[in-house]
Amino acid sequence: RNRTTFSTFQLEELEKVFQKTHYPDVYAREQLALRTDLTEARVQVWFQNRRAKWRK
């Protein structure tokens, strides 16, 4: 699988949710996936990576 390149819009949407919660539930991830045209799995992995970055 190739690396996912996120658009500016997608990143803004993802970051917006991350500001509210670092652990969105499955429903929130599904909604975000639909809004950003990503799969729920991509959204989940983005949050994992974003939390790792945030901890540093």
Rank of each mutant, 00 (worst) to 15 (best):
R1S: 12
N2W: 03
N2L: 09
N2I: 06
R3V: 05
R3Y: 14
R3P: 15
T4E: 11
T5W: 13
T5I: 10
T5V: 12
F6Y: 14
F6S: 05
F6M: 11
F6A: 04
S7I: 02
T8G: 10
T8P: 14
F9I: 05
F9L: 10
Q10S: 03
Q10K: 02
Q10T: 02
Q10G: 00
Q10N: 01
Q10A: 11
E12H: 06
E13S: 05
E13R: 02
E13Q: 06
L14T: 01
L14Q: 00
L14Y: 01
L14H: 00
L14S: 01
E15M: 06
E15F: 01
K16L: 07
V17D: 05
V17F: 04
F18G: 00
Q19C: 11
Q19L: 09
Q19Y: 11
Q19N: 15
Q19V: 08
Q19G: 10
K20G: 07
K20M: 08
T21Q: 09
T21F: 04
T21Y: 04
Y23Q: 01
Y23E: 07
P24W: 01
P24L: 04
P24A: 02
D25W: 00
D25C: 05
D25L: 01
D25E: 05
V26H: 08
Y27V: 14
Y27H: 10
A28T: 12
A28Y: 03
R29Q: 06
R29G: 02
Q31F: 03
A33Q: 01
A33I: 09
A33K: 04
L34V: 13
L34T: 10
R35M: 10
R35N: 05
R35W: 06
R35S: 06
R35H: 12
T36W: 03
D37H: 15
T39S: 12
T39Q: 05
T39H: 06
E40N: 07
E40A: 08
E40L: 10
E40G: 10
E40P: 11
R42T: 14
V43S: 00
V43D: 02
V43Q: 01
Q44T: 13
Q44G: 12
V45R: 06
W46Q: 03
W46S: 00
F47H: 02
Q48I: 07
Q48L: 09
Q48K: 11
Q48Y: 03
N49W: 10
R50N: 04
R51I: 09
A52D: 11
A52P: 01
W54P: 07
R55H: 07
R55M: 13
K56R: 10
K56G: 15
